[in-house]
Nucleic acid binder design. Structure first.
Length: 314
DNA sequence: TGACGCGCACCAT
DNA sequence: ATGGTGCGCGTCA
């Protein structure tokens, strides 16, 4: 017999009833449920513009193999009327969190579940029923992971034409934005939701200003802080050269310093380093990829892009 | 201290 | 119009 942990979620119809029905199906599929957590209500993550979720976690024993177990729970999802579609409202969602102590990393199945450490709606209920259980990957106990998660910044993301865009927020301040994955507590606070809403509008080509968000500069050197603050005042749809920005920031010959500061910008988009271009009418660099700088400038400038960068064929 | 970098001006072709 | 060469400026190791 194998010890397994499953996580259940529902955000469509009678959510708590859906979970009860799923428990019924699970317990009649060769899975012996051991402990069940309370069912909690959480805000959705992944797509913030949908209904709250009911979530719960259970421990169980089964003689099924990992793949048989996967097939079984996907069968239950289908039986209960779940339709395909990532990040869409769902009647029921069942995930395998643990399967004994095995570590599995295939296209089809990842065990332990790859992001359970960042999800309060898994760790919270799991902490309730199995705080001493150990994560075979990190070697840490659930209670330790849970405690760590509570002190992590909140994170969220949107999908854009140029890949996912991630944000993290702590103490009401934006800590970081990035085109690269940011680890953190996957929950939508009002600030995260507001920020993602605005980013979505921005990437749709709307003229959006982000200056009402406060940024956490505590890990930023003082001069860079000043540079970023000045740069934030450069409005949507305009550009500025590295040297001109240097002047505005009080370092008349510090164009290259500006380049360094841009390369390390912890807040792409919100601190609009994509608006900073070379004096000779070329683009300059962009740490997350020059295609993205081109994309953002075209988004903001429209046809004027080709006046400013006549040499660029893109 | 010294190397480094999302630039710039100035001079060469 | 391109292509090299110092220069200058803050960071970080």
């Amino acid at each position: 017999m194998h010890d397994v942990v499953l996580a259940l979620g529902s955000n469509k119809g009678d959510k708590k009833e859906n979970i009860k029905r799923a428990l019924y199906f699970i317990s009649h599929s060769g899975i012996r449920i051991h402990k069940v957590s309370k069912t909690i209500i959480t805000s959705p993550w992944g797509n913030w513009q949908q209904a709250d979720f009911a979530n719960m976690v259970l421990t169980a024993k089964t003689s099924l193999s990992p793949y048989e177990l996967l097939k079984t729970i996907k069968g239950i999802e289908r039986t209960m009327g779940r339709t395909e579609g990532h990040m869409k409202p769902r009647i029921i969602d069942i995930d395998i969190i643990f399967f004994d102590n095995i570590i599995l990393n295939t296209e089809e199945l990842e065990i332990p579940h790859p992001s359970f450490r960042e999800r309060i709606f898994v760790l919270g209920p799991l902490f309730e029923i199995a705080p001493h259980l150990k994560d075979p990957v990190s070697g840490k106990s659930i209670s330790q992971l849970y405690k760590e998660l509570l002190s992590m910044p909140y994170v969220g993301h949107i999908e854009t034409e140029k890949g996912s865009f991630f944000v993290s927020v702590k103490n009401g301040m934006v800590l970081k934005t990035s085109f690269d994955y940011i680890r953190g507590r996957q929950e939508y606070t009002p600030i995260i939701a507001n920020l993602l809403d605005r980013l979505k509008m921005y990437f749709n080509g709307e003229k959006v200003d982000f200056n009402d968000f406060s940024l956490d500069f505590s890990n930023v050197p003082p001069l860079y802080r000043k540079i970023y603050t000045v740069l934030r005042k450069i409005p949507y749809g305009t550009t500025i050269s590295y040297s001109h920005l240097a002047e505005l920031a009080g370092i008349p010959k510090g164009a290259r310093t500006i380049g360094n500061a841009m390369a390390k910008n912890p807040f792409p988009i919100l601190v609009p380093c994509h608006r900073v271009i070379r004096k000779d009418g070329t683009l300059g660099g962009f740490s997350s990829g020059i295609e993205r700088k081109i994309f953002l400038l075209k988004l903001e400038l429209g046809d004027r892009f080709f006046d400013i960068f006549p040499k660029n064929i893109h």
